[in-house]
Every structure is written in C-alpha cells, then in structure tokens.
Nucleic acid binder design. Structure first.
Lengths: 156, 156
DNA sequence: AAGATGTGGGAGAAAGTGGTTGAAAGTGGC
DNA sequence: GCCACTTTCAACCACTTTCTCCCACATCTT
C-alpha cells in the first residue's frame, strides 16, 4: 500500500500497533518510513509534553517549532513551560540501519512506552503510546451531547 | 550519532540525565561534547542567576555576553544585579582529559547539583540541574487555557 | 517462493567511573 | 618574613559498564 500524498495536509495518519523491544528500540512502521525516506533525513527529535505520550518529530519539523518559539520573549511563561517539558523529555536520535529509533529512557519509564505500543500519525509528527493505556483511555472517554453537536455542525 | 547543526538557532537541545560524582565532577554527555569539540575550546564559564540551576557556557559564548554588557553604563542597575549574581556563583573551569567539569562548590550546594542531574541544551549554553527538583517543578507547572491558546496561535 | 518487513542478540567500541599520585595552595611556627 | 609541613585539589591512568552497530534469523505479504 502507499500513503496518499494528494495535497497532503496530513503527513502521517492512522494507527500501527507495534512493539518496543527490550532495548527500548521502536521499529518505525514501514508506511511511515516510506514518507520519512522520501521527505526527511535520518534525524529525529523525540519528546513529550505530558510524559505519557512520546512525540516523534522528523528533525526538520522540530526546527520549525523552534523557529516559531524563537519569536516569543524568553520570559513568556508559555514558552518557558513548553521548553521545560520538551527539554526534560527530549532527545535527538538517529534511525539505525534497521529503521529503528531508540526511545529516551526517561520517556519509556514515565509513559510506560514499552512492550505493545501504538504508533499514530498526527500531522507532521508521530505519537507513540502504550497500547493498553491508550485502550483504557478510549473506553473511559464518552461522547457528550456537546461533542455530538460540534460534530453535527462540522457535518461529520 | 551526529548532532545536526542545520542553521542552528539552538546549539544544544534535549536532556541527558547523568550524575555528578562525589568530587563534584560533571561528565559532559557525549552528544554535547561532540558539538563542543567541533566548535569551542576546553574553557568554560559556569555560573547561575538564581543559584538553583547551573549555566555552563563555552567560554567564547560567555565573552559575547560580556561584550553585550559592556554596552551598558556601569551604573545601570540591571547590569549591576546581573554581574553581582553571575560573579557570586561564577567560576572559569577547564574540561579534564575525561571530558568532566568541576562544578563550583557554591552552586553544588545552593542548587543541590549533585547525584542525579539533568544536563539540558539551551541555545548557546548548557543547563545543569538536580533531576528530582526539575521533575517536581514540571509536575507543578500546569498548562492553563491561556497557554493552550498561545500555542494554538503559533500552530504548535 | 521470494522479497520485504520485523526481531533478537552479540561483539566491539565508546562512554562513564573511581581511584591514586603529584603538585600547588594554604597554614602555622620559628 | 621565610621555611616547612599539611591538606586540598586537579590531572592522569586504568577499569567497568553501556550502547551502538551490524549480522542473522523469523515472519509476513504479494
């Protein structure tokens, strides 16, 4: 199969369950890897805002975020919080010859990102999270009447 | 692995947890050391503004800060406060043959910078802080609706 | 069946750690 | 004020541990 790139607003989409091995290495699902090979280099920035979910940015995409942040004052509290968190969890990593990424240890622990995980496409980056925790979260969050109204208004 | 320096707005980024030994020596994480070896000398200026967090400047970068300060009058209160603090905590140190930096004792005590620490990339310098204290700070600082709005506006 | 994808593991190199020795700085006595 | 002794510090050496790279096998897909 091939990922459509027709006017691609979304670079990555969908869920690819996979597993992180004992050494903390994540195999990038082949479909995502094809997009990466075509569009990006081998460098990635892996970080998180909440410690529960790993965000995997092609390095070029992360740099765009840094550039946006550079426009804010260093005393801007949002910038401080954002950088505190992304710096705390973040690490720059390179893909190995087998298409695997070594996840930062801090993140593996804080988000239980080991064993069975979900790799999700999300716009310009990938999200990696513990599959079991993800499943539980979905079961807990119910659609409210307001949610249904919002969807209706969008015509979904 | 190699750190990209693509149009580097940020010279250093991400977190490398490490530990400061009994003698107060900090091992500079290999990834940061590679950038330093390529771009700077063995001299560093280690100081702090708040006593909680050590700021480790390649000496060349610290000199640039001094030059900027030179543009201000000696009676400028901001300059006085800045120099009072950085002089109080500051020390010039040299990296040893094993790539370690001896942290000034005053800072080790005032910022609990010993045992498990985080070494963080931050623009042109490194930040060293107690890992446990850092973790606690992050857990306390919550994103507010305003923060989310700011990030939304930036498209992050 | 054959290629592509995913998985595990081992060897060698790199990174990290601790300790010891020699020099330098600090202190006290003459 | 100078000399000698003591103590601290820094540089170097050697060992241990971790990690990265690569090879080889298993499994899935077309």
């Amino acid at each position: 199969m091939e990922l459509a790139s027709v006017g691609a607003l979304f670079m990555f989409r969908g869920n690819h369950p996979t597993r992180v091995d004992e050494k903390g290495r994540l195999k990038v699902p082949a479909e995502f890897k094809r997009v990466i090979d075509e569009k990006y280099g081998q460098q990635f920035y892996i970080t998180s805002l909440d410690g529960k979910v790993a965000q995997v940015y092609p390095f070029e995409e992360w740099e765009r975020i840094e550039q946006k942040l550079a426009g804010l004052s260093n005393f801007n509290p949002t910038k401080k919080k954002f950088l505190d968190r992304t710096n705390y969890y973040g690490q720059q990593v390179e893909m190995d010859g087998q298409g695997r990424l070594l996840l930062p240890q801090l993140l593996r622990e804080s988000g239980q990102i080991k064993g069975e995980v979900a790799v999700l496409g999300n716009l310009t980056y990938l999200v990696v999270r513990n599959l079991e925790l993800f499943k539980r979260e979905i079961e807990e969050e119910k659609f409210t009447p307001e949610d249904e109204k919002t969807l209706d208004e969008l015509g979904i």
